[in-house]
Design a protein around this nucleic acid. Structure first.
Lengths: 152, 152
DNA sequence: TGACATCAAATGTTTTTACATTAAATTTGT
DNA sequence: ACAAATTTAATGTAAAAACATTTGATGTCA
């Protein structure tokens, strides 16, 4: 079944329109799958993404600005996202020594443990994507880069 | 520039993880572009998508359920989205004759006019995607279908 | 130095979303 | 035919997002 059938549309104006709609549809499909999984751990998709960004820097801290830059959706309320994570003891916030405007955020051991557990879960559902070969997955990524004008 | 640079990540665990992140990142990139454009016409992306679904059926009506089925993101509040569109006189709601639970929704001439104008705008920014050849755009769609297990 | 611009993060407010519940109409099964 | 289950849409509500504004800190330049 192709995207036309998934959303019951007869035809698209152009292959570009079709690709755009398909990206959005697929994104939603992915988000739903992931969110359902994360819900069991009482973490939202956004929180999960922030945690992964923090792990990427660990053991170094990262500022709120740094988080926003790396987030998939820019979103203005990274502060409040960090608030939520602090409530769960998954990250800590501490003053940045050389610039008191900034705030350093660091993932805690508890946060790292949670991520490790989520990694396993992720691997599991990601096998659902293996209808694509690894090469095809890379081609997909490359085409997306090119679509955004970020290729080469 | 590739997705690694866009989100300042060194490497991905697998080509699948990379593709998933890239889809989400690209989706956000697309949504931002489109929303900015639609904002000038005081229409949200969601509302625009519903309008396009209604045009796809025009001059036939479609029920709220029908809209939800065709929406890119399932979302529970199609009723309220229709409410918003009614306030702007872009659609009308009328009772469904053969099943009084259902509600028929039809796009108005004003709605069609707005869509026509938006189509032009869309075409314009879609040319930004022409770094991809039409064939590549189709390949992209096909890979996404396959990723979801919806291919062939 | 001191006024002014800029920047980082937090906060306020309104709108949307997600999720559950309700209400009315229809279908099903006996 | 009638009670129970199901379907459709609307609504209530709590959480999250979008967007603007504020507060405090740093940088700039006359």
């Amino acid at each position: 079944m192709s995207i036309e059938q998934d959303i019951q549309q007869k035809a698209f104006k152009s292959p570009y329109t079709k690709a755009v709609v398909n990206i959005m549809f697929t994104n939603n499909w992915l988000c739903t799958l992931q969110s359902d999984l994360l819900k069991r751990y009482d973490v939202t998709l956004q929180q999960y993404n922030v945690l992964r960004i923090l792990r990427g820097q660990h053991p170094n801290p990262i500022t709120v600005c740094g988080i926003i830059e790396r987030m998939l959706d820019k979103m203005s309320n990274a502060s409040r996202l960090v608030d939520k994570l602090i409530l769960k003891d998954l990250v800590i916030r501490k003053e940045c020594p050389h610039d008191r405007r900034q705030v350093d955020v660091i993932i805690t051991d508890k946060g790292l443990d949670l991520l490790a557990e989520l990694d396993n879960q992720q691997s599991e559902w990601e096998t659902a994507l293996h209808k694509l070969s690894p090469e095809e997955a890379l081609t997909l990524s490359h085409l997306l880069d090119k679509l955004r004008g970020s290729a080469e």
